[in-house]
Amino acid sequence: MRRKIIAGNWKMNMTPSQAVALVNELKPLVATDEADVVFCVPAIDIIPAMEAAKGSNIEIGAENMYFEESGAFTGEISPSMLTDVGVKYVVIGHSERREYFAETDETVNKKVKKAFEHGITPIVCCGETLTQREQGVTIDFIRQQIKIAFLDVTAEQAAAAVIAYEPIWAIGTGKVATTAQAQEVCAAIRKCIAEIYDQATAEAIRIQYGGSVTAASAAELFAQPDIDGGLVGGASLKPDFGKIVNYK
């Protein structure tokens, strides 16, 4: 039985002082023994958020990471910088990173491999545009993203990874894929992992749904056989995130 993982992606929100206040507000609301709870926060918030989360069930993750150890890469954050402060999760390949900051399937693959080298669990994002869905190429497109993201990644590493399926047309729009649509794609992702590796690896990997997840939609989405939690955007900045985490 795969353990649910529910992660908040704060995006470019919350100053360090606001982050501390939000963590303190959410700590009692997200307390649970039945799921892993991760707050993926802006880099400047990682250390204060970790201090605020001490003694709780909250893990603090990063929203991005570069694929080099160090060097002349102004503005980037290395994996060793993250591990030095105790980061265990990092979001990789979010559609906003791909759209605004020129991330590609190939750079996503480099980041995934580098995260595993440092013992950081990647939350690997994939998702289609509205045009791609309307043209019936969703599954083909997602399979391409997954196959390249996991190139040269071992089965043991893949089993420990998290994949977040986020239809781009549902991110921040208030639109949510139907439960059937979300389950269909997450099942296809699991099938793709089985083809790359084996059934055991596919059964082990955790697959989230993301895209305007709310307290009202969480229970039905997370009850699906191939959806193992959610990557939550705007709702993770509000008290309602507690209702998503404790969805039952």
Rank of each mutant, 00 (worst) to 15 (best):
residue 157 Q to A: 10
residue 56 S to Y: 01
residue 109 N to I: 03
residue 140 D to S: 01
residue 232 V to I: 11
residue 71 G to E: 00
residue 46 I to S: 10
residue 15 T to N: 03
residue 14 M to S: 15
residue 10 W to F: 11
residue 154 T to G: 01
residue 130 L to W: 05
residue 78 S to Q: 11
residue 195 E to N: 14
residue 158 A to T: 09
residue 200 A to K: 15
residue 196 I to L: 08
residue 168 I to G: 10
residue 147 K to Q: 13
residue 140 D to P: 00
residue 227 I to L: 01
residue 234 G to H: 04
residue 197 Y to F: 12
residue 128 E to V: 05
residue 138 T to H: 02
residue 198 D to F: 11
residue 127 G to S: 02
residue 19 A to M: 14
residue 191 K to N: 15
residue 4 K to W: 11
residue 166 E to W: 05
residue 92 I to H: 01
residue 86 G to C: 02
residue 153 V to K: 00
residue 11 K to T: 15
residue 229 G to A: 01
residue 16 P to G: 06
residue 175 K to R: 12
residue 200 A to S: 13
residue 46 I to F: 09
residue 66 Y to M: 05
residue 120 I to N: 03
residue 195 E to D: 15
residue 122 P to W: 00
residue 221 L to D: 05
residue 185 V to L: 09
residue 161 A to M: 08
residue 190 R to P: 10
residue 130 L to D: 05
residue 94 H to P: 14
residue 133 R to G: 03
residue 165 Y to Q: 02
residue 22 L to N: 12
residue 69 E to C: 13
residue 127 G to K: 06
residue 103 E to Y: 01
residue 92 I to E: 04
residue 174 G to H: 03
residue 233 G to W: 05
residue 204 A to H: 14
residue 157 Q to N: 14
residue 81 M to W: 07
residue 86 G to D: 08
residue 114 K to G: 04
residue 54 K to F: 00
residue 63 E to W: 07
residue 69 E to S: 15
residue 84 D to G: 03
residue 168 I to T: 11
residue 177 A to G: 10
residue 73 F to R: 12
residue 244 I to R: 05
residue 64 N to W: 12
residue 75 G to L: 09
residue 80 S to R: 12
residue 46 I to M: 12
residue 80 S to M: 11
residue 42 P to N: 12
residue 124 V to N: 03
residue 167 P to W: 02
residue 192 C to T: 14
residue 193 I to P: 00
residue 206 R to I: 05
residue 86 G to T: 02
residue 35 A to C: 08
residue 88 K to E: 14
residue 137 V to I: 10
residue 88 K to I: 13
residue 91 V to R: 08
residue 107 T to L: 06
residue 106 E to G: 06
residue 169 W to H: 00
residue 127 G to E: 04
residue 123 I to Q: 04
residue 140 D to A: 07
residue 242 G to M: 08
residue 3 R to I: 11
residue 197 Y to E: 02
residue 25 E to W: 00
residue 214 T to P: 13
